[in-house]
Structures are given as structure tokens and as C-alpha cells.
């Protein structure tokens, strides 16, 4: 009888532990959605993505892949700098750093505008020729 009771209790425990129900509800948490792309304008579609929280810089709190449009979303639950790293198999990697001041207000600051591309291109060519002139003077 004792053995029977033991088996019955074991069965009940086992069935309880394996009989999780599942469900869903709309989360009240807000997320941050990012878009990743190459310098050519091409989207980083279906690339490996990792999210690192401010609490742990070593282990990703979330891993996954970007969607077809190169988008990836995560839900920050604490303040600080969150990092999202998206990489492909060819040695390209994009690291987004997101400063979260308030988890209830995730409005991202607009990035600081950069100089137009043609200005940076002209600046680069100018620097190359200046370096060349310096080397020329030293050599002659």
C-alpha cells in the first residue's frame, strides 16, 4: 500500500511539473526597435543579433536575428547603456549603444547630424595630399 501511495504521489508530482499551461498577453513594456544596414544602404537582413544590458557586459540577455528589413527590437528593463551587436559571417559588425535614462520613456535622442558625405570625401582627399606633401618635404 505504501509503495502504491508513493507511486501515486510521484505520478502526481511528475504530471504537475510537466503540465505547464501557456498563454500570452500584450506587454505593457515598451521596446526599442533598431534598423541595421551596410554602408552601401543594403539592409542587414537575418543577421545574428545580441543584446547586452548595463548590468552584464559579458553575457547577452537576448540573442536572435534581425528580420528581413534588418530590424531588431528589445525591451530594456533598467537604466544605463544597452548595447546591441549585429554581425554577419563576413567580418562586418555593427554595435548600437543606447542610453536609457528612464525605462518608462524610451524616446531615443536623435543622432547628432554629421557633415555631408561629399564634405567628408573632400576633407579626406585634402588630408591625403597634405600627408603626401609632408613626406615629400622630408624626402627632399
Amino acid at each position: 500500500m505504501k509503495k502504491l501511495m508513493f507511486v501515486l504521489m510521484l505520478t502526481l508530482c511528475a504530471s504537475k511539473s510537466y503540465a505547464h499551461g501557456v498563454g500570452f498577453r500584450q506587454s505593457s513594456f515598451r521596446s526599442i526597435a533598431l534598423e541595421f544596414f551596410y554602408s552601401t544602404g543594403e539592409k542587414m537582413s537575418y543577421r545574428e543579433a545580441k543584446v547586452f544590458s548595463p548590468k552584464d557586459d559579458k553575457f547577452a540577455v537576448q540573442t536572435g536575428r534581425t528580420d528581413e528589413e534588418g530590424r531588431f527590437a528589445f525591451v530594456p528593463d533598467c537604466v544605463g547603456e544597452w548595447r546591441v551587436i549585429v554581425r554577419d559571417e563576413e567580418g562586418h559588425q555593427c554595435e548600437a549603444k543606447i542610453d536609457i535614462d528612464d525605462v518608462s520613456n524610451l524616446d531615443m535622442k536623435a543622432p547628432e547630424p554629421e557633415e555631408p558625405l561629399y564634405i567628408r570625401a573632400i576633407l579626406g582627399v585634402s588630408i591625403i595630399f597634405n600627408i603626401a606633401m609632408l613626406i615629400y618635404r622630408r624626402k627632399s
Partner: peptide
């Protein structure tokens, strides 16, 4: 790199940069 080839080097470096 000889002195007279420095400008050429800068030109090609610029082409690669662009």
C-alpha cells in the same frame, strides 16, 4: 617610395579612398 612618385601615390590613395 621615390620623391617623384609621392604625388602619384597620393592620387591613387585618394582614388582608393573614394
Amino acid at each position: 617610395t621615390e620623391s617623384e612618385k609621392i604625388v602619384r601615390t597620393a592620387l591613387i590613395s585618394s582614388a582608393f579612398f573614394l
